[in-house]
Simulated assay, not measured.
Amino acid sequence: MAKVYTIHDIAIRLNISKSTVSRALRNHPDVSKETKQAVFDMAEKLNYQKNILASNLASKSTNLIGVVIPEIARQHFFAQALSGIQKVAKENGYIVMVCQSNEELQEEINQVRALVNSRVAGILISLSKETNSFGHLQEALDRNIPVVLFDRGTDQLEVSQITVDDYKGAFDITQHLIDQGYSNLAHLSGPMSLSISQKRYNGFIDALKNNGLNSAEAVVYQCDNLSLDAKEAVDRLLSMKKQPDAVFCMSDYMAIQVLKHLKDSGLKVPQDIAVAGFAGDPITELMEPQISTVEQPAFDIGVQAAKRLIMEVETEDKETLGFVNKVLPTKVISRSSTVK
């Protein structure tokens, strides 16, 4: 039987690393033209191209990157993040497989295990709102499949994470509302199982404290279904003896629903009550009135997460590389839903 040559054989003959050979075969821009040509020539000489499947089986990985997100349909953020991931993956010779958890832990577990069984090179994941255990991700790590969290992270796993400064974004948009003269603020949060919900809540509360407002009496309504609880939240706010004069919503989609229900109730925004969101979804600019929001660098989050994952996939010294926790900045966009 003819010998099945691998990347290792090419690397030995050219006296270069296996990761360099791997990148050259994927036409990675970091590899010089001379090295690429040498690798291509040696691969042809060894008939390597005819044995790619055998090589993948031997290394127990492919050029696939698995991505697990909560949802796409109502989430411009994840659509943009996926665009960033796709861009980096394509530039580096990887193919992206996208799965949705639908905000369910069991579905997240199923999707992660399916990706592991598909021998993906690495996994990018934004956790579901139900995720409170991480055995499925540890299973991937135990099989030497790198995992990088993006947007929604956790401190219960020793992995790289690419997130935004949810705390400061919430603090800044709350400060904006206070600067506009609003003093009886309410916050519609997401489920507190999510780290982003906790950070945005903390930013809201600390901004109140920083301005001498009574945070203990602040109205906070937890929307476990994110956008789906918006109508009930608005009804509750309007039934209060002292109605809030401004509402900071966990997400833009939630803010859009709140705006709609306020207008259906005959109230004017911002004259009767101001509304602000979080995400920077372009649709907020098309609403009447336009909704103030916190802009997140969604595309860049995808880019940074994909770059980090590929770095961890291709490194030959994971222990030295270690892990990173990169936090990207946010920006307040003030519009007519809050500006008096």
Rank of each mutant, 00 (worst) to 15 (best):
V303G: 05
S334R: 05
M311Q: 11
M311W: 13
K326C: 01
A305Q: 09
T315I: 12
F323M: 04
R335M: 03
M287F: 05
M287E: 09
V294I: 14
V294C: 02
S336Q: 07
I301D: 00
V339F: 08
S334D: 04
K307V: 08
Q296L: 10
G322V: 04
D300N: 14
R335N: 07
V313C: 07
S334C: 05
M287S: 14
S292W: 12
K340Q: 12
Q296N: 13
P329E: 03
E319F: 14
N325D: 11
P289M: 02
V294M: 04
Q296I: 02
N325V: 06
I310H: 07
A305T: 03
V327L: 04
K307G: 02
V324R: 04
L321G: 06
A298Q: 05
L286K: 04
E316A: 09
T320C: 08
T293H: 10
T338P: 00
E319N: 03
S337Q: 02
E319M: 10
I333N: 02
L328V: 12
R308C: 10
Q290K: 14
L309V: 05
T330V: 10
A298F: 08
S292T: 01
V303D: 04
T338H: 01
R335Q: 08
K340R: 15
F299W: 05
P297L: 14
G322F: 15
K340C: 03
I310W: 10
E314R: 08
T315P: 00
E295P: 07
L309T: 01
S292D: 04
D300T: 09
S337P: 06
I301Q: 04
E295Q: 07
V327A: 01
S336V: 02
E319P: 00
S337L: 09
R335P: 01
P297E: 02
A298D: 07
K318W: 12
S336C: 06
T320Q: 15
P289N: 12
T293E: 05
R308P: 01
K326D: 05
T315E: 03
E312D: 15
T330C: 09
P289Q: 10
G322N: 12
A306W: 13
P297M: 14
A306P: 06
D317S: 02
N325M: 11
E314V: 01
S337Y: 07
E288W: 12
K331E: 06
E316D: 13
V327P: 10
T338R: 04
T293G: 07
K318S: 04
T320W: 13
E288N: 11
S334F: 09
D300H: 11
I291Q: 01
S292Y: 10
S292Q: 00
K326G: 05
K340W: 07
T315V: 05
Q296M: 01
T293V: 13
I310M: 12
K307M: 01
K318E: 09
T315Q: 06
G302Y: 14
G322A: 09
V332R: 02
K326F: 02
L328D: 03
K318C: 08
L286V: 10
I301F: 12
E295Y: 14
V303H: 06
A298G: 03
F323G: 00
G322Q: 14
G302I: 13
S292A: 09
L321S: 13
E295K: 14
K331V: 11
E288A: 06
V324N: 12
A306N: 02
Q290H: 07
